[in-house]
Design a protein around this nucleic acid. Structure first.
Lengths: 339, 339
DNA sequence: TTGAAAGCGCTAACAG
DNA sequence: CTGTTAGCGCTTTCAA
């Protein structure tokens, strides 16, 4: 393995000059530059990144903390983050917290040991007060969630708007009895989603019925369970916002089994735009998260923070979801709207 | 940011002693050890990893090259690799090749620049001769594929066995007219799969009909297309091995639309055990790949190579798939077997 | 059992 | 425009 010294010797120059060529510094004569480049090529020289990191106090690496990689949403986000990082010549170290406070803290230590220049978190397992203490060692950015008092740049999707447009969509299709599923996670975002949803109803003078509120619903099984509940109600909702494609799939699957017609008898809205939404029959109307935009913005902002060395800030970058309208809310027969 | 020097000063000892404590060396008196530890704690000292890497010529980082992260199989593999790495206190740098030769080479350069101790590849975009040249800089392991003449440790699934058990399963259920889909990828593995499949048929004295061989089939759309083709054949196969859950989903979806009954009129086998297999009706019989085992073995082997500094070898680690038998091949009515 | 000193490979004042 | 020199923070001889 050849070093900068070897190159210098072969080129008959000093290490400094070689370094200057390496870093595209001005003040190197064209002639010496060529000399250096020839020597580098001849030796197959490649700069050692550990030495550079040590000297520059920069690694060119960012850590991404994710609860579980194989979750479709996270794998999409990770994919986009990698692309964004790559475009900026950064490497990504991938850290799976598996929802563990301990693991999250361990990974945040990468900041302390200077193994990474910055950290992108996609959720908080520990309290803000814990996270905060790592801010002394480098920038942290929160992508995909929003935490009230967290004094770090945050990239997130406006959940209130999301709830709002879903409700609006269903209202426009004449639905007045709309059910809502919460996934049991208590977070700013989840609260906002619910509020946005209810606001749309209120604006349409549509009263939200508490009996149509389902809690702790997140899996296919939950969806099936919820459907059975619904099927047994005296007053049955005509539409449901499930908060998750899995739940939607479960509801539809159970509904079909019991001979219901979707969306005629029950319109269903999912969340996440997972693959299954286009595979099931009917295809599921779902919320598309702005994954790519959030990834790009996250990289842009963390990059800036790394270079500005000013890590605390309440800046928020907001993105909006889109609704992919598919068959599960597309009326084949006109619904009798209640005015 | 405090350094080892600061700790030494505060403890009234030398850097050497502090380093010894840090690395659990023998020959440090209990008393000095305590002193050092106190000083470290007091200063919130954490060793700088760039300095360590430079000095030790080891980074504790492994690069994983993957074509596309969000592909369900790869995200699962990545998840397992991360867990295995974490267990060995290694970090993973994630590299998306996006099927590009150029990107693959760029990422392999991480080995040259000593940014990583080793590389795990999950596919080859470049020829072996290219890849080989990077072997001078560190170990490379191939996980998930097998490349004939590649002189590196390889962890893979036995595709021949996979094709064999699928065919066997269908034969046992009385099928004699079985269709086969190739995904268009020309690789050792794909060839082996096909051969294993045909071998099982041959052993059952069942002649494989070339008209039941479909090429370049990999998406949902392909599946739908294939089904339409099948529906128009004079002699119709009673079962099909799709080589992919997407394809299977497409076939089933189109078949149902045309009023066919699955598996009664056509048994379908997928591949990958993706989420959809359990969500569709009927649930899809599919091949489960030994992801976790392959990930663990990969980490174990690359770890060993890193430490043995002997990178070339033809060693192969073989794993076997399992068949998840679900509704799409479960006969409700006995099929008339042709003898 | 401890410490002094050299050096991993690179970059950036500073001086010329 | 170019080179000398002094480290970045750590580990490891070697000597005591």
């Amino acid at each position: 393995m050849s070093t900068i010294e070897d190159v210098a010797k072969l080129a008959g120059l000093s290490r400094t000059t070689v370094s200057r060529v390496l870093n595209d510094h001005p003040y190197v004569s064209v002639e010496k530059k060529r000399l250096v480049q020839q020597a580098m090529e001849h030796l197959g020289y490649v700069p050692n990144s550990a030495a550079r990191s040590l000297r520059n106090q920069k690694t060119g690496i960012i850590a991404v903390l994710i609860p579980k990689i194989s979750t479709p949403f996270f794998s999409q986000l990770l994919e986009r983050l990698e692309m964004a990082a790559s475009a900026k010549s950064y490497q990504l170290i991938i850290c799976q917290t598996q929802f563990s406070k301990q693991k999250e803290r361990n990974y945040l230590n990468l900041l302390k040991t200077k193994q990474v220049d910055g950290v992108i978190m996609t959720s908080f397992e520990n309290d803000w007060s814990i996270i905060e203490s790592y801010l002394n060692y480098g920038p942290i950015l929160l992508c995909n969630e929003i935490v009230e008092n967290a004094e770090i740049p945050t990239v997130y999707m406006n959940q209130a708007n999301c709830g709002y447009i879903v409700a609006k969509h269903l209202l426009e299709r004449g639905h007045r009895h709309i059910a809502y599923c919460s996934n049991g996670i208590v977070s700013e975002g989840m609260k906002a989603r619910e509020q946005g949803f209810k606001r749309a109803l209120a604006e349409a003078s549509c009263f939200f019925e508490e009996k149509f509120y389902f809690e702790n619903v997140s899996s296919v099984e939950d969806g099936k369970r919820i459907f059975r509940k619904i099927a047994n109600m005296k007053i049955i909702p005509t539409a449901i916002f499930t908060g998750g494609d899995h739940v939607a799939a479960g509801i539809i699957s159970e509904a079909k089994k019991q001979g219901w017609s979707i969306p005629k008898e029950l319109a269903v809205v999912g969340f996440d735009d997972m693959e299954i939404t286009e595979l099931l029959d009917p295809m599921i109307t779902t919320v598309i998260q702005p994954v790519e935009e959030m990834a790009l913005k996250s990289m842009e902002v963390i990059y800036e923070k790394i270079h500005k060395k000013q890590y605390r800030s309440f800046e928020k970058y907001e993105f909006f979801s889109k609704l992919a309208v598919r068959d599960s809310t597309r009326m084949k027969r006109k619904l009798v709207a209640t005015f």
